[in-house]
C-alpha cells in the first residue's frame, strides 16, 4: 500500500513538471507578455518617445531578451520557491489574487459536490432498485436531457423561472434568490444560501446526471451478485439488503469515478462563474485572458493541473484501499 502511494505520488510530480512545461509553451506561444504594457501605452496620447522608453524598460524588467528556455527556468525556480511573480496588469502578487479567488471557487465546488453526490445517490438508488419502473424511466430521461443541455442555457432559464418570474408575479421588493456574486458581508446564513443556490445547482446538474447513471448501473450490477441472493435468503429485508449491501458495494467504484470527475471541474466553473459573477478562478481566467496577463494565465493553468492531478492521485489511492485487487 505504502509502495503504491509512493509510486503514484512520484509519477504525479513528474506529470506536474511536464504539465508546467506544456503550460509555459502554450501561454508563451499564444500570448506576448508585453501585451499589457502595449495596451496601456496605446490608450491616451502618450508621447511616442516616452512610450518607446517605457516599453523597453518593461522588456528588460521581464527578461524577455533571454532565450525562452532560460525564462522558463527562471519562472519554474520562482514557482518552486512559492514565488508566482506579479500580475502584469495590476502589479499585485499573483499568489495573493489566486488565493482569494481559489477560496471562492472551492466553496462553489464543495457545495456543488455535496449536492451532486446526495442527489445522485438518491436518484441512482431509486432507479437502480426498481429498474424499468416509471420512476426509473422518468429519472433516466431527465438525466439524458440534463447531460445534453448547454449549462449556460440551463442557468439563464433558471434565472428566469426562479428569480424573474416569482418576483414579477408576486411583486417582491427583493428577489427570492440571487444571480449576482457572493453573499453580502453583513448577510447571514440564509443570505449565503440564497446566493449559492443557483450557481451550485448549475454546476452540479451535469454531475448529478452522470453520477446517478453510474450508481444506477452499479446497483443493478450488485443486485445480481451472489452475496445479495445469500443475504436475501438469510431473511434480511429488501431495505436492509439494498442499503447495507448493495449500495455499499456500488459506492466503491463510484468514489474513484467521482474523484476523477471532480478533478475536471475547473473547466466547468468557468461558465458557471461567468453567469453568476462568482468572483472565483473562472473569472480570474477570463480577466487574465482579456488582459493578456501571462503570469496570471500560467498560475491559473498550474493550479488547475495540480487540482486535477491531486484528485487523480486520490482516486488511485482510494481505488487501492477499497479494491485489494488493484494493489498489485
Amino acid at each position: 500500500m505504502v509502495r503504491l502511494v509512493a509510486r503514484r505520488t512520484a509519477w504525479s510530480v513528474l506529470v506536474l513538471f511536464a504539465a508546467s512545461t506544456l503550460c509555459f509553451v502554450i501561454v508563451r506561444v499564444t500570448t506576448d507578455p508585453l501585451t499589457v504594457t502595449r495596451a496601456s501605452l496605446n490608450r491616451g496620447d502618450v508621447d511616442p518617445e516616452a512610450a518607446a522608453r517605457l516599453l523597453a524598460d518593461e522588456r528588460d524588467r521581464l527578461g524577455l531578451h533571454r532565450p525562452l528556455a532560460a525564462q522558463y527556468g527562471h519562472w519554474l525556480a520562482g514557482v518552486a520557491h512559492g514565488d508566482w511573480g506579479e500580475s502584469l496588469e495590476s502589479h499585485r502578487p499573483v499568489a495573493a489574487d489566486v488565493r482569494s479567488r481559489l477560496w471562492n471557487t472551492v466553496q462553489l465546488i464543495a457545495f456543488g459536490i455535496v449536492l451532486a453526490v446526495a442527489v445522485a445517490i438518491l436518484v441512482g438508488v431509486v432507479s437502480g432498485a426498481r429498474q424499468y419502473s416509471a420512476a426509473d424511466h422518468a429519472l433516466s430521461g431527465l438525466s439524458f436531457v440534463a447531460l445534453s443541455m448547454p449549462s449556460f442555457w440551463f442557468a439563464l432559464m433558471a434565472i428566469e423561472v426562479l428569480i424573474y418570474f416569482p418576483r414579477h408575479a408576486l411583486h417582491l421588493d427583493h428577489p427570492l434568490l440571487y444571480s449576482v456574486g457572493l453573499h453580502s458581508p453583513s448577510g447571514g446564513l440564509l443570505d449565503y444560501a440564497r446566493h449559492l443556490a443557483l450557481p451550485v445547482m448549475t454546476l452540479s446538474l451535469p454531475l448529478v446526471a452522470a453520477w446517478s447513471r453510474y450508481i444506477r448501473a452499479s446497483m443493478i450490477d450488485a443486485l445480481s451478485a451472489p452475496y445479495v441472493q445469500a443475504a436475501t435468503a438469510k431473511g434480511l429485508s429488501r431495505r436492509q439488503v439494498l442499503l447495507g449491501h448493495v449500495l455499499r458495494n456500488a459506492l466503491i467504484p463510484f468514489t474513484t469515478v467521482s474523484a476523477v470527475g471532480i478533478g475536471q471541474l475547473f473547466g466547468g466553473v468557468i461558465v458557471t462563474e461567468a453567469i453568476f459573477s462568482w468572483p472565483g478562478m473562472g473569472q480570474l481566467l477570463l480577466q487574465a485572458l482579456s488582459d493578456g496577463d501571462t503570469n496570471m494565465l500560467l498560475a491559473w493553468l498550474m493550479v488547475a493541473a495540480t487540482f486535477a492531478l491531486g484528485l487523480n492521485l486520490l482516486a488511485d489511492i482510494l481505488n487501492g484501499v477499497l479494491d485489494p485487487r488493484a494493489r498489485s
Binding site: 513528474l14 488547475a304 486535477a308 487523480n312
Partner: peptide, 23 residues
C-alpha cells in the same frame, strides 16, 4: 499513458480560450 494524463489534467476549455486569444 503519462502523456494522456498530462492532457487530461490541463482543462481543455481554458487551453482553447488561450489558443483563440493568440490565434
Amino acid at each position: 499513458m503519462r502523456c494522456t494524463d498530462l492532457l487530461l489534467v490541463i482543462p481543455g476549455l481554458a487551453v482553447l480560450m488561450i489558443a483563440q486569444h493568440g490565434l
